[in-house]
Structure formats: structure tokens, C-alpha cells
């Protein structure tokens, strides 16, 4: 166990991507009751658009902004054109779930058709490694984790201190009461989908920098992000962030000390055990019926 610190550090690094994706999933779910299974592919599409921008000469930082903006707008369009027309109600929520799964498959195919199936390498923002608390990490990982944490702090500030953020929390709690005080549900949904998909794009961008841009970029991360969401609670934003980091750390500990082959099995066995004891997750609230 002498190398526990590096393992935890690696877990925090990978967990930051899961946490961002998980936060995006929860923000969208709370505002529109929709589990957006296309969030990973939307983010990947944003990354490929930014890769094209980089190939045209855009600096990496600009490319990151392009990925965030594109994914955000794509999310808004998805909500406006595919999810909102389904209308409210439990039946449409199930249909929305199927629609987002279908959209994800469509995006995945489109990426292959447009950019091909060969992975595209992205040069790191800053090459080389750095020692953090005695742990050697690439600058890319350090920057990715720092940006993820800054993004999460921004989200916390946004929801706590801005009028739109407070309105989004209000709308998540009671759609009808929110309308009664004059909050426009369509605008809130647009903000949520833009923010959720934008956060996912940050995660995807740094995953691509760490590995490569490819159509399967977010599949594994999204799998773990969903685990983080259920671990932290589907309705809780802090829970999603904590859940994402917890999955990252658990994943690395399982891989290092138990079995690399069974890391997924071990991680999900722990999650099942936790959910057995606390079905709403660590920080999630029980589902309230809206009237």
C-alpha cells in the first residue's frame, strides 16, 4: 500500500473527467427529467469539430472553447428539436431516453463517416511531466484536472449566486411553481442542456488529448460517469461530482491492488452494494411526485 498516494492521484485525475460528465448528466436530468445518453457522443462531436479547427491552425485553447461552444449549441438543439416536442409526462420521458440513445448512435456513425475511423492524435497543451506530492503526472493531466475543478467551482458558484442558476434550481424542484413566478421553462432547459453538454465537452477534450480523438472516445468514461451519478444521486449536483471522483479513485485502487482484469466488476459490485444500502445514492433525494 506504499504507493497508495499515486494511485489516488491517478484516480482523482481520471475521476475529474467522470465528474464533469456526471455533472452534465445531472444538470440536464434535473432541468428536463431527461437522461441524455447522447451526452458523450455530443461531446465527442464537439472534440472532432475542434480537431478540424486545430488542423486549420486554431490554438489548443481556442479549440477547447470551440468544442465547448459546439457541444453546448448541439445540446440546445437536441432539447429544442428532439426532446421538447415529446412533451411532459412519464411516457415521453421514456421516449426521450430512447431518442437520446438513438441520437448517440447517429452521432457516432456520423463521426466515422465524416472524420474516418482512425484515431487522431492531439498534441498536449504543455508537453512533459510534473511531480505533484511526489507523484509524476503529465502536464496534460494536471491541466485537465485543474480545469475540471475550476469548471465545477464555476458551476457551484453559478447555481448558488446567479439569478439564472437559482431559477434553474427552482425549476428543478418544482416546474409548475417556477412557471408561476415567471421562469421560462424553455430558457431554463436551454441553459441546462448547453451547460451539461459544454461540461461534457471539456471532459472529452482532455480525454482526447490523453489518448486520441476517436469515435469511441467517451464510451468507457460515460459508463463510469453514470456509475458516479447513481453513486452520488441522480438529483444531486455535488453528489455527481463526488460520485465521479469516487469512481475514478475506486477504479484505480481496484486495478492496482485487486485485479486489472476485473476492475469494472469490482467497481460496480461496490456501487451495487452502496445502492443496496442507500438507493438514492450518497447525496440524492428520494424522487418526489410532481403534481
Amino acid at each position: 500500500m506504499h504507493d497508495l498516494l499515486p494511485v489516488i492521484a491517478a484516480g482523482i485525475v481520471s475521476g475529474s473527467a467522470y465528474a464533469l460528465l456526471a455533472l452534465g448528466i445531472v444538470i440536464i436530468f434535473r432541468s428536463t427529467d431527461t437522461v441524455n445518453f447522447a451526452i458523450g457522443d455530443t461531446a465527442t462531436l464537439g472534440v472532432f469539430v475542434s480537431v478540424t479547427a486545430m488542423q486549420a491552425g486554431a490554438p489548443v485553447a481556442v479549440a477547447l472553447l470551440i468544442a465547448i461552444t459546439f457541444a453546448g449549441f448541439f445540446g440546445v438543439a437536441t432539447e429544442r428539436l428532439l426532446v421538447r416536442p415529446l412533451g411532459p409526462g412519464h411516457k415521453s420521458l421514456f421516449i426521450a431516453l430512447v431518442v437520446t440513445i438513438g441520437l448517440g448512435l447517429l452521432i457516432h456513425a456520423a463521426i466515422g463517416a465524416i472524420w474516418g475511423h482512425r484515431p487522431i492524435t492531439i498534441a498536449p497543451m504543455v508537453p512533459g511531466t510534473v511531480s505533484v506530492f511526489g507523484v509524476a503526472l503529465t502536464w496534460n493531466k494536471v491541466i485537465a484536472t485543474a480545469i475540471a475543478i475550476v469548471a465545477m467551482v464555476f458551476v457551484a458558484w453559478f447555481f448558488r449566486f446567479t439569478t439564472v442558476g437559482v431559477a434553474m434550481r427552482a425549476s428543478a424542484e418544482d416546474h409548475f411553481a417556477a412557471r408561476v413566478v415567471g421562469i421560462n421553462p424553455g430558457r431554463i432547459a436551454a441553459f441546462a442542456w448547453a451547460l451539461g453538454c459544454g461540461l461534457a465537452a471539456i471532459a472529452a477534450f482532455f480525454l482526447a488529448m490523453e489518448t486520441s480523438a476517436n469515435a469511441n472516445l467517451t464510451i468507457s468514461a460515460l459508463f463510469r460517469a453514470f456509475a458516479g451519478v447513481f453513486l452520488g444521486g441522480l438529483t444531486s449536483m455535488p453528489g455527481a461530482a463526488v460520485g465521479g471522483f469516487a469512481i475514478g479513485i475506486l477504479d484505480n485502487i481496484a486495478g492496482r491492488y485487486l485485479s486489472a482484469n476485473y476492475r469494472d466488476t469490482i467497481v460496480f459490485a461496490v456501487i451495487v452494494a452502496v445502492l443496496f444500502i442507500k438507493p438514492a445514492g450518497f447525496l440524492g433525494a428520494g424522487r418526489k411526485e410532481r403534481v
Binding site: R169, E173, V180
Partner: peptide
Amino acid sequence: GRRLFGQL
């Protein structure tokens, strides 16, 4: 039922 935002 007032419909306040209880968590706010």
C-alpha cells in the same frame, strides 16, 4: 399548498 421552493 403554497408551492414554495423548499430546498431554496
